[in-house]
Amino acid sequence: MLSGSSIRPGEARPVSVSAMFLYAIWITILGVATGDPEKLAVTTILTGIPGLILGYKRYGILVPLIGLALIGSFINMVVLYNVGNPVFNLGPLVVREEAWRRTLGLSFRIITLAGAGLLFASTINPRDAVKTLESELGMPRGFAFALAFALRLLPLIYRDLLEVLAVRRMRGYRRVPISPGDYKSIIMPILSISIERGLWVGIAAELRGLSIRPKRRFKPRFKRMDALLVVLAVIQTLAVIGFLGL
């Protein structure tokens, strides 16, 4: 069952799909627009952390793994930029100002962007996202069809995957793929079956009028709670353009 879905996309959620989508995109842009740790701290607190918390509830391991990226950025900065006044000691290593500032900047960006994406993914289900991209945000019909069909294929491919893994076990091959050859031998049968399905689905879609499908563009159906997103977006924008004196 798709969680939180409704006949009209997004109806079951307090915020509209379009607003959530635009919010996530805007915060992503803000997160890349600046490298100042002070400014990015604002997007991290208002979007990044809430996104990670919601994301952790739904997607588990994905979120803690972000820690690896933060460690990676720290190592990079220490190797490349360990100059300036000492900030703190890590065992024998003296971490200096430049390296630390840059670590913070990049880390806050990683958290902000991941959080914005997770915030969207944990509040909007994929079906609603796909429908809204076409009907409210103007994605071209053919591309939107491809996206919707991809979503239809996802659970089908999961079923294929279980079958392929079952056969691997029967035939005495390891089920957890390690070598590129393992990956290839798992992907190829799935690809083969999917291509055959795709061909026929494409024919069926044409016979059902895909090529005369009118451009569907409704006005985005904003909701009252979207105002909260606007307020949050404004605060973060002001912070990033330096209006808040950070």
Binding site: F149, A150, S194, G202, A205
Partner: peptide, 17 residues
């Protein structure tokens, strides 16, 4: 692009994802 191309695009999109 025909419907067949878009469907194949969908196949490739999900496998890629």
């Amino acid at each position: 692009y025909t419907g067949v191309d878009y469907a194949l695009l969908g196949v490739s999109g999900i496998i890629a994802a």
